[in-house]
């Protein structure tokens, strides 16, 4: 086996380049090296000006998302040997403004996320002395999958609707809203509905399904969105048919 592999890395220097330029680096092809290790090698030994984000190196912080050979990947969980003999093309995540080299600006997501109130909403907060809000394992099972999201933005990067429709709330934000909507302790579904059931919410999604295909944590945002469409549409139609009764029911629970 070859001892080296070529990384073709997208370089973008704001104010200098008008668009990214590809630059090639030779890095050691070691069995346990991820793309991120290759990039760290470049930074430490070949070119200290290369910029990229990373933190935990173990697939949980969600910082090191990049486009590897056209596919959105966590660069810490994608191994050099899987791409041998190379070359490996490393670009920033698509659908986000590139700040520098492999660093993207995810402010858009950070502004959208709080709009869906991704926390347990209670009508009346009971004091701590009264104890925890209890939950059975079955109730946990309802939403646990959606709580695995690490905000790595791979789903936004794979979503064509988000690239065409920047106002679209997007896969992770909606999946996280469902994570709370489906939580037995939560009472905020009705508050979230204004945002989720708006044209920029679930209705813009056309179920391409790539968000779920690229998710490194096995979350199914596409499924969450379709399930929410069914819930929201059923509710809207109920309200249309019997306005008064359903409004009272809605204020109680939904998912």
């Amino acid at each position: 086996m070859a001892t080296e592999i070529t990384l073709e890395v997208a370089r973008y220097r704001p104010g200098v380049d008008s668009e990214p330029v590809m630059q090639s680096y030779q890095v050691p092809l070691r069995e346990h090296w991820a793309i991120l290790d290759g990039l760290t090698y470049v930074k430490d030994h070949l070119d200290g000006t290369l910029s990229f984000r990373w933190s935990c190196r173990m697939g949980i912080c969600g910082s090191c998302g990049m486009t590897v050979n056209g596919e959105p990947q966590l660069s810490c969980a994608t191994f050099l040997t899987d791409y041998a003999p190379g070359p490996i093309r490393v670009e920033p995540l698509h659908n986000f403004p590139v700040v520098r080299d492999l660093v993207v600006d995810i402010d858009d997501f950070m502004t959208k996320l709080p709009k869906v109130k991704p926390w347990v909403v209670r009508e009346v907060q009971s004091p701590v002395e009264e104890g925890e809000y209890l939950q059975t394992p079955e109730e946990l099972d309802e939403y646990q999958q959606f709580s695995m999201c690490i905000n790595c933005m791979l789903c936004y990067s794979a979503c064509p609707v988000y690239s065409l429709e920047p106002d679209f709330l997007g896969p992770a934000a909606i999946a996280l809203a469902q994570r709370y909507n489906l939580d037995s302790r939560d009472e905020g579904a009705d508050e979230r509905r204004d945002v989720l059931s708006s044209p920029e919410g679930v209705w813009a999604c056309t179920f391409v399904g790539e968000c779920s295909a690229v998710c490194p944590k096995g979350v199914d945002p596409a499924g969450a969105i379709q399930r929410y469409k069914l819930t929201a549409a059923t509710q809207s139609i109920k309200e249309l048919l019997m306005p008064r009764i359903s409004r009272r029911l809605n204020s109680r629970s939904q998912g």
Binding site: D194, S197, P199, W203, L230, A232, A233, T234, Q235
Partner: peptide, 18 residues
């Protein structure tokens, strides 16, 4: 109160999926 009550999207989606 808000635009969602009058949005036709839920109904159109229901027709689409049926």
């Amino acid at each position: 109160m808000n635009h969602r009550r009058s949005s036709p999207e839920p109904l159109l989606w229901m027709l689409f999926s049926s």
